[in-house]
Design a protein around this nucleic acid. Sequence first.
DNA 1: GCTAACATTTCGGTATGCCGAAATCTCGTG
DNA 2: CACGAGATTTCGGCATACCGAAATGTTAGC
Lengths: 223, 223
Amino acid sequence: MSGRQGAATSVVEDYVKVIYSHTEWQTDPITRSELAVRLGLAASTVTEMVKKLAALGLADHVPYGAVTLTEEGRALALRMLRRHRLIETWLVESFGYRWDEVHDDAEVLEHAVSDRLLEAISESLGDPVRDPHGDPIPAPDGTVVRPVGILLERAPIPFIGAVVRISDRDPALLQFLDGRGIRLDIVVEVVERRPFGGALVVRVAGVKSDLGAEAASSIWLSA
Amino acid sequence: MSGRQGAATSVVEDYVKVIYSHTEWQTDPITRSELAVRLGLAASTVTEMVKKLAALGLADHVPYGAVTLTEEGRALALRMLRRHRLIETWLVESFGYRWDEVHDDAEVLEHAVSDRLLEAISESLGDPVRDPHGDPIPAPDGTVVRPVGILLERAPIPFIGAVVRISDRDPALLQFLDGRGIRLDIVVEVVERRPFGGALVVRVAGVKSDLGAEAASSIWLSA
DNA sequence: GCTAACATTTCGGTATGCCGAAATCTCGTG
DNA sequence: CACGAGATTTCGGCATACCGAAATGTTAGC
Ligand SMILES: [Mn+2]
Ligand SMILES: [Mn+2]
Ligand SMILES: [Mn+2]
Ligand SMILES: [Mn+2]
């Protein structure tokens, strides 16, 4: 039914995962150049692989046009995100990794852990539904419960909300925020915005911090 | 110093591991054809890869001659055996795998788990020194504590000893033995050998069983 | 010492992924 | 609506790891 079912290589798995996750917090489909940057590959390589994804029935591919996933591609992406995020959670919960340390190990293990072991890990963690960064862990059937939140950058002033998600793209930022006491579920108060595109001032546990543009566009607060 | 240190691919890791483990319970070095069988590859492929191992400084390679590991190759093999056996132990202890079910998962994970995670796993298990089949788990520095035992096949009659190792080569055999109550540390009594190369009769927990040649050459008893 | 059986190597090919340079396409601006 | 900057694709190449067929080496038995 689903094409060459077991055939996805770990390279294919990563492409599909990156294509999907781009649309998770944005609406427009990912460009090939962005895919190349995200995967650390040359643009020509991405062009070739996207054609292969289309041949595998995982992506729709119009030359010079958008890259979008087929139903099958989306299903594979969700399976990979489940793997990645469960493994991140497991590293934190079971082995004391910090949230800024889990990504690289998870990036490798997501391709190596068997379905049986993955589900055993999930069970041992009590079947968590979000990872250490607040990203939703898709269920085995592909169901996703998206956390509801607004980007700190776009919060009205004043505003109070709990952190529901922090982008895990930059480990250094995660460490920085951790040092400011900004973690999942912590209540953040948006106090003021400094003029002329300046920093956002927030109060966390009574202490004020300045957050620059990159930080403010990486934190989601509960509505 | 140690050549292209981080450069070993998972293929190289498997070759070195198989070459080393052949000499663990036998003295003669492995032949290329046996290597090919063990790895499930064509003989020509093995020839090519062994030359590459030599180029990497991991093996000594005389055309048409024996394949032996260099000091560096042996060190890599021991690191891989530590990985493989710790992971097998972990799957059994932490996730309830049976001893005949661990091999395939371990074969993949041994290449994917980071040093940090591996040592965390070892610690969580209390730094075990043998795996579910009785094979020794090399220490991080390469130290190996070999279990002392004699092959059941070569045991005098009568003889009594505890099982110290069972070859993990054939999962079906492991299951068979498990069904007969033959597991690590179980006391086995060698009762008689049936004539003309026949089966060996053993008593386990009061119950007699016939063991064929394959089984008798896969079990080691404490001396 | 010959020779045949068997092990090993060589050789031409294939598949997957990757790259840089050059060619081509797209689209906003003028 | 032409044009050029920037995105995308094409093309020739490379590295890794695999195969089968053919050539070659080794060695045990005569
Ligand atoms: Mn990955
Ligand atoms: Mn994450
Ligand atoms: Mn392996
Ligand atoms: Mn084992």
